[in-house]
Amino acid sequence: MEAIEGKRAEPRNKPPFPVYEGLWGKPTALNNVETFANVPQLLVNGNDWYKSQGVNGCAGLKFVGVSGDVRKPGIYLIPMGTAMEEVIFQHGGGMEAGKRLKAFAPSGPSSGYLPASMADVHIDFKSLAAAGSMMGSAAIVVCAEGRCMLDMALNAVRFFRNESCGKCVPCRNGSQKMTDILTGWTQGKGTAADITLLEELSEAMKLASICGLGQFAHSPITSVIKHFRPEIEAHILEHRCPEGVCPMREIV
């Protein structure tokens, strides 16, 4: 909306929400392409048919994108409530031979990485929220064994740093400092105090950023610390990358 109005592409403070005051101050509906893609089916088959498509007590259909270490990455239309493992192993074709699932992000890195042990989670709003994640766009990222979860988290945090518009302090400065801290960990420069600092920074970014980008930029690393703590601690405390991915020395 800001760009259409000829301004820098920066998020607005909310409220007011766009449905009340949006483009040029007028009520504006902003929808994802996925929402529009559902409209023809609803018009052709009707509301009741659509609702009946869900499984495991859920209603409707969901587009999911499967990417990462799977043999058949792609976009699939699945019944709402389908188990994550079904999507990864059946639709996505599972891992390369001999590799096992290590982690997955249900909705891109901003939903956080969950461990393989939680792959039975159902893809619907409530189940994913209960698992500490979110449904979001359901752009599922799959990690097989051999991936370093710190490396995955750093990659995602660096991406958020690059995409930050710079409007607000927590996201502009926070995403850079978070990238600095994680980069230090991958270079064997971590200290025990870093985890506390990172937690405080995550909290500030989550609570004070203007838009979702800053609010969720911490998710990759906080989820990885929660579910893969020993692996992360090996980097910070022992200056060792268990998967042998991180350089563990300064790269000039």
Binding site: N13, V169, S209
Partner: peptide, 19 residues
Amino acid sequence: PVGVCRLCVVEAGGRVLSA
């Protein structure tokens, strides 16, 4: 007001703090 420094955030009942 533009709400960019975020120092004036307060708890006002939302999921996140408000400027």
